[in-house]
Design a protein around this nucleic acid. Structure first.
Length: 297
DNA sequence: AGTGGCTCCTGAGCGC
DNA sequence: TGCGCTCAGGAGCCAC
């Protein structure tokens, strides 16, 4: 961890530990397409088999994984493409098979020398560098799917906010029928895929909506601006290659620069740039958020 | 339907 | 200096 990050934690008065969201995962995806698309997998090393098991009820393993099954299924396959749905990465290795990755909180997928802390890594033919999956907190997962669109995690996801086909009016109607608080509503991956705490917090600030505001109390005139602001913060994150506080890195191991663009996230007790009122931090349904008590209603 | 609480895990902050 | 406690958080699942 770099010293500047520690200083930031102190300056902000909050130890923000954000995790990869849509812009960060999309940045990794784009990097991976240029780095490994078309490459043939020559070996898969699983150093920590829990990376394949995931978490089920009471934290137990979600899937039974036979030793070697994952490796045998993938060796000799070519990575045809790398796709993204929400915060999930999908490695297309054939009509009949994909492998999926979720970085959860601290996961990294980096192409380079084998990472010292890699839980797993993939080697490719005619390529000296490997794809390492490192993950300090070990919440991340890798798993196989015959048809990724039918994978239960993927199938449950809501629409992609940056898709051209995103149906704003249907989404708005659905949102305004929900009794959930806005912070929870936007974090719900079934309602919209890809948002996490950072971008939800930023989008609500830009929209003048309190995190605790009930979705069904929004005016219909607030829906389109909200969607525009969600898209704006996601695009801003994307164009600066994601927000790095502590753990996030792109697939080349580089930090993203979008942290400098954040207006509210992690800035509790700082003055609002619009009205100078001090931002307030609070928990909404177990999630930390920050808002301006004057600008956000 | 929404929420709270719990699980996985580890490192940072903090009280003493 | 260092130990032990608390907290954070994505997703899944359960209870209310």
């Amino acid at each position: 961890m770099g010293g500047d990050e520690a200083v930031w934690g102190i300056v902000l008065g909050v130890w923000a530990s954000p995790v990869p969201e849509l812009p960060e995962v999309e940045t990794v995806r784009r990097d991976l397409v240029s780095l490994i698309a078309g490459k043939k997998i020559s070996d898969v090393i699983i150093r920590d088999r829990r990376v394949l098991e995931g978490f089920g009820p009471r934290g137990g393993p979600r899937r039974a994984v036979r030793a070697g099954e994952f490796t045998r299924a993938l060796v000799g396959r070519t990575v045809r493409d790398v796709l993204r749905r929400g915060k999930y990465l999908i490695f297309d290795v054939g009509e009949d098979l994909s492998f999926l990755a979720h970085l959860r909180m601290t996961g990294r997928l980096v192409v380079g020398p084998v990472a010292a802390d890699a839980r797993a890594h993939f080697a490719f033919e005619e390529m000296s560098q490997v794809l390492s999956f490192s993950d300090t907190r070990r919440f991340g997962e890798l798993w196989l799917a015959k048809d990724w669109r039918r994978d239960p995690s993927i199938a449950a996801l809501g629409p992609e906010p940056l898709d051209e086909s995103f149906d704003a009016s249907a989404w708005g109607r659905d949102l305004r029928r929900s009794g959930a608080k806005m912070q929870s509503a936007l974090l719900d991956q079934k309602r919209m895929a890809g948002l996490g705490n950072i971008y939800v917090t930023e989008a609500l600030f830009l929209s003048g909506i309190r995190p605790t505001r009930r979705a069904r109390t929004l005016k219909s005139s607030q829906i389109l601006p909200l969607i525009e602001n969600i898209r704006r913060v996601l695009q801003e994150g994307l164009s600066h290659r994601g927000v790095s506080f502590r753990d996030y890195r792109d697939a080349r191991g580089q930090r993203g620069q979008a942290r400098d663009r954040l207006l509210v996230y992690g800035k509790a007790k700082s003055p609002c740039p619009r009205c100078n009122t001090l931002f307030r931090g609070l928990k909404v349904s177990g999630r930390g958020t920050v808002y301006c008590p004057k600008c956000q209603k």
